Simulated scan of single mutants.
Amino acid sequence: MSFSETAKSALFRSTASIERVVSPSRVARIESATNFLVLQHATALGTVIHATPLIPALHETVPGCRIAVAASGFGLEVLRNNPGIDSLFETPSPLRDLAGAVRALRAQNPFREAPYVTLTPTGNERTKVALQAVLSGAATRIGFTVVPELYRVPMSFDFSRSQIANNLRIVEALGHAVEHFEPQVFFTAEDAAGARRLLVDSGACLDRPFAVFITQTSVTQRKSWRAERFQQIASFLFEQYGMMPVFVGTAAESDAIEKLRGGLRIHSVNVAGKTNLPGLAALMSLAKVGVSLDTGPLHIARAVGLPTVVIAPAWSPPVEWLPVGDSRFRILKNADMPAATPDYIIDEVSVDDVTGALTDLLQVHPRQTESTART
């Protein structure tokens, strides 16, 4: 450890010690804590969604607890309609505006007059997130962090376990046994109505079943599948099951989707960039099946229980992100490699692999597409 790192570590330890002496009333007893403040400033959609099981797990293990969430970015949209959260409020991301994040948290924190425990799920391991908690008066901190000196129970990621299992370790750190919970994204009746309007306005017929296609992924992630293969799968679902393909994604991905759709001889719909996250969850709740790369919107499909075939890359271990062992999903990971090469495409997953998985999935899970909206 360098001299600067040693000095910084000593400063953080001193800060935590002084804090406990100066503000003893803010120190919550972990084993009897009932007030929880979650900081959610993760910048990846999947990371935020895979932290949502923490909410029902806390209610299951600590009956009568109160949960507040201070969030920015994706966190606000993903958690907007969550019935397990007593207070959801926005602060600036401390990664961009630490002073503003501290002020906003101090002003809106519903527990500022009572002992509480601050929890930081995976994706919030930044020094500035910890400092937001410290400078806002949170004397008891548990969770994932790169500054263990500032935490009562510091945690680091266990790569042998999933994102969800890692986040549920926070509940274990509170002294409670916990079982698995699935991700949750809730939407309102208005979101559901908006999804139906969007489909109709985009040229869909609501009397026809449809399949959701997630065909694009981050340019920094080697997780692509060839466009002509997606086209063959879309044609298969249309011809065999009468399903119209509906392509989803971000506005930035719309042009690539349009190019893919140009090779289809069947009617399809592109709604990329036309929904917020609760609206996308509502739309997916209306679909019969999904075909997806291992990427952000897949986790929304999982959160609303959409049976999905996942085309997974050889270099990424399924245990971290994918719904391993869940019969609603077919994970096609047909090769293993230590890292992605610059020209990597998931060619080891064939069209026949996907059509076979879809046929099986539709037999085992013939989905009823009734709304699961929460108001």
Rank of each mutant, 00 (worst) to 15 (best):
M1Q: 12
S4Q: 14
S9H: 09
R13Q: 14
I18K: 13
V21I: 14
P24V: 09
P24T: 10
S25L: 13
R26C: 11
R29H: 10
Q40M: 15
G46V: 03
V48I: 11
V48H: 01
I49E: 07
H50C: 12
A51F: 05
T52Y: 02
A57C: 07
E60H: 15
T61V: 07
T61G: 05
C65F: 09
R66Q: 14
V69G: 06
A70R: 02
S72A: 15
F74L: 11
F74H: 11
E77G: 12
N81L: 12
N82C: 11
D86W: 08
L88H: 11
T91G: 03
P92Y: 02
A99C: 07
G100T: 06
G100P: 01
V102Y: 06
A107I: 05
Q108T: 08
Q108E: 15
N109G: 08
P115A: 10
Y116T: 13
Y116A: 15
V117K: 07
L119T: 02
L119A: 06
T120E: 06
G123S: 08
E125Q: 15
K128Y: 11
V129D: 06
V134R: 04
G137D: 07
A138F: 06
A139T: 01
I142W: 03
V147H: 01
P148S: 07
Y151T: 05
R152V: 13
P154V: 12
P154H: 04
M155R: 05
F157L: 14
F159D: 13
S160D: 10
E172N: 05
A173C: 13
L174W: 04
H176L: 04
E179N: 14
E179A: 15
P183H: 08
F187K: 00
T188E: 06
A192H: 05
G194M: 05
A195S: 12
A195I: 07
D201S: 13
S202F: 05
C205S: 15
D207S: 14
P209I: 00
F210T: 00
T217S: 15
T220F: 12
S224M: 09
R226E: 15
F230E: 00
Q231L: 10
Q231C: 10
Q232T: 04
Q232H: 04
Q232E: 14
S235Q: 13
S235N: 11
F236L: 05
F236R: 02
E239C: 03
M243W: 01
F247E: 02
G249I: 07
T250F: 07
T250Y: 07
A251Y: 08
E253V: 06
K259P: 01
L260K: 06
R261F: 03
G262Q: 10
G263K: 09
G263Y: 08
S268D: 03
A272H: 04
A282W: 05
M284Y: 05
L286N: 01
L286Q: 10
K288L: 08
K288R: 15
K288T: 10
D294Y: 04
T295C: 08
L298C: 09
I300H: 00
G305Y: 02
A314W: 03
S316R: 08
S316Y: 06
P317L: 05
E320L: 15
W321C: 02
P323M: 09
S327D: 12
S327I: 04
R328T: 05
I331P: 00
L332F: 08
K333F: 03
M337W: 05
A340V: 01
T341F: 03
I345T: 13
D347F: 09
D352C: 06
A357W: 01
A357C: 09
L358N: 00
L361W: 00
S371K: 03
T372Y: 03
A373T: 12
A373Q: 08
T375C: 13
